[in-house]
Amino acid sequence: MVQRGSKVRILRPESYWFQDVGTVASVDQSGIKYPVIVRFEKVNYSGINTNNFAEDELVEVEA
């Protein structure tokens, strides 16, 4: 279970941040499909630095 402030590695192959490390900004408990919002240092092609992920697409590298 990841929690706010954890450092996580992204396992979603189609993601711009695949294999990159980001910080968990928040975790939604309402039961949505992609409840974990992760914030990154670098921006993607659209200038965005956050994205939603499912918990099984993340691996915690640092608490």
Rank of each mutant, 00 (worst) to 15 (best):
S26C: 15
I32H: 10
Y34G: 03
M1H: 14
R9K: 10
N52S: 14
Y16S: 02
V38S: 00
V27K: 04
Q29W: 11
W17D: 00
A25E: 15
Q29K: 13
F53N: 03
F40C: 03
E62K: 11
I32Q: 10
V59H: 07
E57N: 01
R39N: 08
V24T: 03
V59Y: 08
E41P: 06
A63Y: 11
R9Q: 07
R12G: 02
L11V: 05
G5E: 02
F53P: 01
S30C: 08
D28T: 06
V8C: 09
Y45P: 15
T50L: 09
E57W: 05
E55A: 13
V27Y: 10
W17Y: 03
D56C: 12
G47R: 01
D20I: 10
S30L: 06
S15F: 05
V36T: 00
K42I: 08
G5K: 03
N52H: 10
D28R: 07
K7F: 09
V59R: 08
E41R: 09
P13A: 13
N51P: 01
R12Y: 03
Q29H: 13
V21S: 02
E14G: 13
V59L: 12
V27W: 06
E62L: 10
P35A: 09
E62F: 13
R12A: 07
V2M: 11
Y34I: 01
N51G: 15
K7E: 03
S46I: 10
V36I: 15
E62M: 11
D28N: 08
Q29R: 14
V59C: 13
K7I: 11
M1E: 06
S15I: 04
L11G: 02
T23A: 03
R12I: 05
G47M: 03
G47D: 04
V43P: 15
E60I: 15
D20E: 13
E41Y: 08
S26W: 14
D56V: 07
E62S: 12
A25Q: 14
V59E: 15
Q19D: 10
V27H: 04
S46Q: 15
V27C: 07
V38D: 00
E41C: 14
F40L: 00
S6E: 02
L58T: 02
N44V: 06
N49M: 06
R12L: 05
Q3A: 10
A54G: 08
W17F: 04
I48F: 11
L58Y: 03
D56W: 15
V36E: 00
F18V: 03
V38N: 00
K33C: 10
T50F: 14
I10M: 03
F53Y: 06
Y16W: 07
V27I: 14
G22Y: 07
F18G: 00
Q19N: 14
G31C: 14
A63N: 12
S15L: 04
Q3W: 04
V21G: 01
V2R: 06
R39T: 12
V2W: 12
R39Y: 12
S15D: 04
L11Y: 05
V24L: 02
I48N: 11
T23N: 04
V61H: 03
L11H: 03
D28G: 07
A25D: 14
Y34M: 07
G31K: 09
D28K: 05
D56R: 07
S30H: 07
L58M: 06
E41H: 08
N51R: 04
G47Y: 06
G5P: 02
R39D: 04
